[in-house]
C-alpha cells in the first residue's frame, strides 16, 4: 500500500492521484489503534490512509494523530472512537463538509481550511450534543 502510494506519487504526471479517495493519513501513533473502512479493519500505522466513513479507534494507553487534506488536525487519547461521517474538500467547486462523530474518549481538534472557507460545514457530534467549529483549537471528552 505504502509502496504503491510512493510509486504513484513519483510517477504522477497529471491530476491523477495515487490514492484519490484518501482524505487524510495517520501521522503519529503510540500503542495500538485501528482504522475500519467499509467493514474492513486495519491496524493503524504511521502513513495509514483515512477515508470518508472510516472509523478510528485507539486502545487503552494508546494515542493517535491524523492530518486531513484540508489541514484539519485531530488527535485522540486512549479508548477513543471517532467516525468521519462526511468529508468533502473541493474548494474550487465550493463543495466543503467535515462531519465527524465522537462516541467515546478524548479528542484534540485543530480546524483547517474547510472551517475557514465554510464554518457551518464543520461539526463534531457526540451522544449528548453537537459542536460547531469556528476556526479554532479545542478538546472534547465523551465519557459513557
Amino acid at each position: 500500500m505504502r509502496t504503491a502510494i510512493l510509486l504513484a506519487g513519483m510517477l504522477l504526471s497529471s491530476t491523477v492521484l495515487a490514492d484519490a479517495n484518501a482524505i487524510g493519513y495517520v501521522k503519529t501513533l503510540n500503542g495500538e489503534a485501528s482504522i475500519t473502512t467499509a467493514g474492513k479493519k486495519v491496524k493503524a500505522e504511521v502513513g495509514t490512509a483515512i477515508f470518508q466513513g472510516s472509523q478510528l479507534k485507539t486502545a487503552a494507553k494508546s494515542s493517535m494523530g491524523i492530518t486531513f487534506k484540508d489541514e484539519t488536525v485531530m488527535s485522540f487519547g486512549p479508548d477513543t472512537e471517532l467516525t468521519v461521517d462526511e468529508y468533502l474538500y473541493n474548494p474550487s467547486q465550493n463543495k466543503l463538509k467535515l462531519g465527524s462523530k465522537l462516541t467515546k474518549g478524548s479528542l484534540n481538534y485543530v480546524s483547517g481550511v474547510i472551517a475557514k472557507l465554510q464554518p457551518s460545514a464543520v461539526t463534531v457530534t457526540t451522544p449528548t450534543g453537537t459542536i460547531g467549529v469556528r476556526g479554532t483549537q479545542f478538546a472534547v471528552r465523551v465519557e459513557e
Partner: peptide, 10 residues
C-alpha cells in the same frame, strides 16, 4: 483529561 490527545497532535 486531554494530555495524551494533545501530546499525539501531529
Amino acid at each position: 483529561d486531554f494530555g495524551a490527545a494533545i501530546a499525539a497532535r501531529p
